[in-house]
Simulated assay, not measured.
Amino acid sequence: MPTVSEFFIEYGKRHGQKKRSWRDDQQRFRDYLKDPLGSRKLSLVTREMVGRILSDMERDDKAGATVNNVRALASALFGKAIEWGYVTENPVRGIKTRKTVKRDRFMLGHELPRFFAALADEPNTTIRDYLLLSLLTGARRANVLEMRWAEVDLTEATWRIPRTKNDDPQNVTLSPEAVMLLEQRKVLASKSAYVFPGTGASGHLVEPKKGWKRIFDRDELNQLELLIQPKNPKSPKTNVRLNMSEAALEKLLIETRAQAVKLGIDVESARMANLRIHDLRRTLGSWQAKTGASMAIIGKSLNHKNQATTAIYARLDLDPVRQSVNTATTAMMEAGGMKEKVEVVRLQTVRN
């Protein structure tokens, strides 16, 4: 009888690696199932154990969709364990799915200048460019992470994604800002097949969450210092933070929060709350709508797919999509206080 971790390896080899969501399944297993269940024998996992994991996720304010995805993975694992003769019962059976609320969060006009300023201080150029290109294209996270130079035509300003979440290919129009970013990125990453190379087995960047958190840690630190300064003019202003380590940044943020609390400052209001990497995609769509794009154009540019709009999308070429993306990009850059395109794309001089 294998342990849950041992069976997950077998599950991956025999079934999981064929799934489009396999990389996501690995992340979900690692983050939510491995520690509480990994060392237990399959036959000893109970419904109560699985239920406690999902309840703990809810307590930690995980989205209903995230909880349901972990539940689905656990159910799939034990489904295969039954099929392959290891166990006879699925402990997930009887555990209800959670109610999901569709997110509508995107980056607001007053948040864009703060985001760009904090992004400019990010020392990891791969992370910085990945997040900026995610905003400029509105493409899904996995597609941007796996973006290859062979898929990019800078002359035509297009990016051909061979296979998307919808199982269809997609032509992504690249705004002038995105083209300039990629032209300069090619100088940095031309030796790799990937636009955003990584050091792991995949060859490309896999997990940008730590870099995403650093962006908002820097912004919060900046905001707290601005709030502290009028109440304590002698408080030194940190010259952030280009070469500051992650540990040093976290330590400084904790100390600055404590100082702000002593001065009676509401520290909760200093952070841009509840923003996720996927919200960059929603941000482009929101700014397209704000600048007058039709729902059909937005759906085409973001590769949304449903029965009501598929026929409309099929009749659209890239010209109106390009115009809409370019208009929205310009509006976002202007709202972010970024007037020069070169400054927008690079956000800072490439450090050699």
Rank of each mutant, 00 (worst) to 15 (best):
L318H: 09
P320D: 00
I277C: 03
G264R: 11
V267M: 01
R281F: 04
L316N: 07
P320N: 00
E250C: 09
K290I: 11
V325H: 04
A308K: 15
R322C: 05
L249I: 07
L253C: 09
V267H: 00
H304A: 11
N326L: 09
T256C: 07
K305N: 08
A296L: 12
V321F: 00
A289F: 04
G292V: 00
K290L: 14
Q307I: 15
T327F: 03
L263T: 01
K290V: 07
I265Y: 05
A273Y: 06
G264F: 06
K305C: 03
A260P: 08
L252M: 15
D317N: 15
E268W: 04
K300H: 10
S294V: 04
L275R: 15
L252H: 13
E334R: 13
A270D: 00
K251H: 08
Q259G: 11
E334W: 09
K262G: 10
E250L: 11
D317G: 12
D279F: 07
S301A: 15
A258Y: 02
L263S: 01
A273H: 14
A247Y: 09
N326G: 03
T291N: 10
R281H: 05
A293C: 05
K290M: 14
E334M: 14
L253K: 07
I265D: 03
H304Q: 13
I277P: 00
D319Q: 13
K251F: 04
A289T: 13
G292C: 02
L249A: 08
E334A: 13
T330P: 08
L284K: 01
S269F: 07
K300S: 09
R257I: 13
D266F: 01
